[in-house]
Design a protein around this nucleic acid. Sequence first.
DNA 1: CATGAATGAGCGTTCATTCAT
DNA 2: CATGAATGAACGCTCATTCAT
Lengths: 216, 216, 216, 216
Amino acid sequence: MSNYSHSQLAFEKNMSDTRISPRKLPQQDRARATVEAILDATAQLLVEEGYHKTSTNKIAKRAGVSVGSLYQYFPNKEAVVAGVVEAFADDQMAFLGERLMELQGLPLEESVHALVVALLEAKQLNPDLHQVLFEHLPPIGQIDVLKDWTDQAVALVTLALQSRDELEIENPQLTAFVLISACHGIIHTAVVNSPHLLADENFSREVAKLILSYIK
Amino acid sequence: MSNYSHSQLAFEKNMSDTRISPRKLPQQDRARATVEAILDATAQLLVEEGYHKTSTNKIAKRAGVSVGSLYQYFPNKEAVVAGVVEAFADDQMAFLGERLMELQGLPLEESVHALVVALLEAKQLNPDLHQVLFEHLPPIGQIDVLKDWTDQAVALVTLALQSRDELEIENPQLTAFVLISACHGIIHTAVVNSPHLLADENFSREVAKLILSYIK
Amino acid sequence: MSNYSHSQLAFEKNMSDTRISPRKLPQQDRARATVEAILDATAQLLVEEGYHKTSTNKIAKRAGVSVGSLYQYFPNKEAVVAGVVEAFADDQMAFLGERLMELQGLPLEESVHALVVALLEAKQLNPDLHQVLFEHLPPIGQIDVLKDWTDQAVALVTLALQSRDELEIENPQLTAFVLISACHGIIHTAVVNSPHLLADENFSREVAKLILSYIK
Amino acid sequence: MSNYSHSQLAFEKNMSDTRISPRKLPQQDRARATVEAILDATAQLLVEEGYHKTSTNKIAKRAGVSVGSLYQYFPNKEAVVAGVVEAFADDQMAFLGERLMELQGLPLEESVHALVVALLEAKQLNPDLHQVLFEHLPPIGQIDVLKDWTDQAVALVTLALQSRDELEIENPQLTAFVLISACHGIIHTAVVNSPHLLADENFSREVAKLILSYIK
DNA sequence: CATGAATGAGCGTTCATTCAT
DNA sequence: CATGAATGAACGCTCATTCAT
């Protein structure tokens, strides 16, 4: 998966919220490498220890830089985590967007099943990080992974639904919301409760059935 | 809502895990009152401040007892939170169980809609606490709210499905799981993303539609 | 000099400013001893290292208690220093008040000279602490040693002036202010610039001359 | 007021103390401008944030140069502040020297009053900086604003007193010391305690009265 | 049993200073 | 010369937990 590349783009997205916006854009290659190492180390520690026990000093040590360097690029701990979330969301959406592209032209049944599989796979990109971000992050600043992830996924699926002329959907946005949040809920719960389901071919079929009977 | 009564039952449930099991059963009324006050205070602080900032000293102060007393009944902070989770789950299931009872004999359509509404209402019992427990609790010990809640809700719904002879469901447990986790996912996401949906009559209708077209 | 006894009284004085008011009144003897040790250690460190380098950890170590204990009684570093200032001011005023009492009935000349000597001696009570508090304390919260000290000293001297019927002073408060701030300025500067002056009998005579020729 | 011009003179004064002496004399105009910008920025930050929070990085940013440049001209933070103090003292003495010049030939009464007014005005040149330097600077290196300021002012006034043949003063230096430190003390305390006094015409009259009755 | 004073490791963060570019 | 990324010791402060009273 991605290495949480702290892209210029990602940086600028958060520039509006001064509480978590990066302190400055890294201008030299050395600096860019530092920022990346910090984000990678943070993602690892978040998984291994949880937010609470992920200290900025540990992050710095793991990243092979000094705490001071961390604070050159991030105003506080929250901002570092926000950076990880940002990168995570970007990766997820890049992945889902690509998969949805490939669906065009396929028959509806296959298409829906492929969507479910894509969502399942997205969750496997970095399952532990996924879990920490969605289930165990304290309410910090403006960070809301669930909201951000859902909003972006809904947008993607809304477009996909609208491009299907054979479907007569009154409110594509609502439908997409129900669809995405249902799938996400099922998959997420399956990960936590019954990991064995994930590998089962019948599982994705069952979920696809739910979707199909709903939108048809 | 409930006052997180530290029921004898709840206490015994955790007796197997020594890391979070209560130290002793409160045997006098005064003791029971103390434990209750602690759990109530904890629930409040969890909502107001989050897990991280909910300190045992603050809990004790808010509960009107000394820290020492807290540690008479709970071996550590995790155990206190586990107690809150326990009480929360009990409340939720008591509520849902009652509602599902009332459904017997109703036509399927109404029944399903009523179930969805019950789930919505369950989430309103203490929405803030709900959110903290489901979304923001760090991974502590054996506590897994999502797993516990889902397992119990699935059990209830499995029974309800099985009691409907008109339905021919191959794997009622899987169906119940899909159903519950989908509903929970949709509702939870709606709370976070689009609270306005919750009051909308069409919203529960839409969710009911999803369920109905799936199980019929 | 005083041991900066953290008197109940001194505690209550600051109760209005929540930013520096003590966290709680020590209720046991053990606690009172802790508070006293903290204030003594702080005064020492303030002198030896200055405010900036006087860290709460060092204070605690020197006082023979843990940092945690310090923070049980003081909400922050400022409050500890405020406690020292409080005790210092109390000591100074107790001393000056006593000396002024003894002046009653003496002829004016002697009286004035005795006042000057008293001020000189007050500065010798703890000259180093005096200097740190008056000259090197950063602007913290509502703490203003110069203002507090002057206000109290002016009040004492105003009374003393008014009790002298032979003096016809129009505005005793203004006269007291000029008198006190002049003496304080001279003595303080002498301490810094020309310590040898302090022991010189002529010095106090000279200052007394300034005062006498002014009020007569 | 002055821009804290880092005069060649000021530079050389400190050449003896290697701990705070500037590293090299700025030889080009650009360098001189840099040094000046640094001193100005420092003076501002000293007032706005105090010594403690005035960091070299902030100084550099405010001055529009890099930290590295700052360390080209000053060996450490103390030296920068010493530079500010130096410039401040130079400004003050230039101002007072000029004013004392104008007094020659005036009658004694007027002369003394004019001196008091000059001291009052000197304090208004940059009252906030005045206060920080005199009251809130930690004891750093050999810097002692009060001592330097007093010594220079005493020297000026001693000369002025000696040039007055009508006065028969035994020890002009002691008299000048008492005079200057008294005035300084009164004015300084008035600034802190009773700023309204400063504008009052009677205030300077009262102080002049103190001086006159003393030296006559 | 209840109390609350005491502990101290560890947190998030700053800042004077250096040095490769 | 100027730059600014990097350093890391040290700061102020919190909090889960213990134990003498």
